[in-house]
Amino acid sequence: MADRLGTYRSKRDASRTPEPVPGEGPLPRGNDDTFVIQEHHARRLHWDFRLERDGVLVSWALPKGVPDDPRTNHLAVHTEDHPLEYASFAGEIPKGEYGGGQVGIWDRGTYETEKWTDREVKVVLHGNRVSGRYVLFRTNGKNWMIHRMDPPVAPDADPMPEQVDPVRPEVRERLPRRAEAYGFEFAWGGCRLIVFSDRGTTHAQDAGGEAAKTPSGLGESLAAHRVVLDGEVAVVEDRETYMIFDVLHLDGRSLFDEPYQRRRELLEGLRLAGLRWQTAPCFDDGEAVRAAAREQGLPGVVAKRLDAPYRPGKADWRLIPVE
């Protein structure tokens, strides 16, 4: 009988990787009802979808994860069978090793088999983040597709915008009189950048709607979300940094009509902080922000009405220069 884990073992050195590498021998007997989805930050971010079958985890790599709408199929690249112990693996595969990068468990649970052939696999998943009927079908060689057979997870979800007309602050000489009605941020003096991220697949636009470069690694940090961010790329502490000050769409919900204060709460909940990006701070003392901007050599302070939706062309944002 063929060694189901021979290919798996041939790609790994048990002395160099923390992954489970069982020796040759009889395969364990299970119930053929365990599934796991692992978020894998390798050379390219992807999700590993694994189903227990005949003593191994039959595996596919999903570049865009599991679809949650039957109108969209996702690529599923069939990979080598993995040992059952891999269902609980999470950790860092060393750089230079096969699949090097961080592995985390994104979801796991049980499943039921409706059909299993060499070309088609139908299952019902029961997980914490993914549940419902799915089918994987072979298209060409190792390339398969995964399709959700049930209705959309969020049938009322708002589509992610394809482009954004960014709000631009109006220049004013003085801070607003009703300071309690505003939040105050630094004007960073950088270039506007709108980032669109769909579970790690990202693209960006500048203030004029032209394609722009996404900060390296940001897509991976947003891998669990479908999100649209607004901010500017500026030199902060001698490093080019994407200062993120707004969120316009989050996981199927449009936020354009939400007040600025609520959008800020949702943005801060994302806890975005990296070497090349961070959440821009917001304060309630405009005079203090303006004084700090002057001291740091920044161009000014931006005052944003706390109750204002995201409305291009409206005077809800004000830029007050330091001079």
Rank of each mutant, 00 (worst) to 15 (best):
L84F: 01
R178T: 14
I244S: 03
W47I: 08
E220D: 15
L270W: 12
S216N: 13
F245H: 03
E220F: 02
Y242M: 04
G189V: 09
T110L: 12
G297P: 00
L270Q: 08
W47Y: 14
V21S: 13
I37A: 00
E114I: 07
Y111P: 01
S15H: 15
F89A: 09
A14I: 14
D107N: 10
M145R: 15
M145S: 14
I244M: 02
T279L: 04
S10T: 09
W317P: 02
G274K: 05
R294N: 10
G209F: 06
R276I: 04
F245R: 01
K115C: 14
E173Q: 12
P166R: 02
L51G: 00
G104Q: 13
D198T: 14
E114T: 08
T7W: 13
P155M: 04
R174I: 13
F196C: 06
D230E: 14
I93S: 03
V21D: 11
L272Y: 02
L84M: 08
E114F: 11
S88E: 13
V123Q: 02
R43H: 11
K304S: 04
V135K: 04
K213Y: 09
C191N: 15
V233M: 12
E114R: 10
R53E: 10
P161K: 04
A224F: 07
N143I: 13
P169S: 10
E173A: 14
A211D: 15
Y182Q: 01
V153L: 05
G200I: 00
W144K: 05
Y98W: 10
A291E: 09
E287M: 08
Q261M: 06
E97M: 07
D284C: 12
R4P: 00
Q163P: 06
D246P: 04
R305C: 07
L175S: 06
R43E: 10
D165P: 00
L266W: 02
D13G: 07
L27N: 07
D3E: 12
A292W: 04
E170A: 15
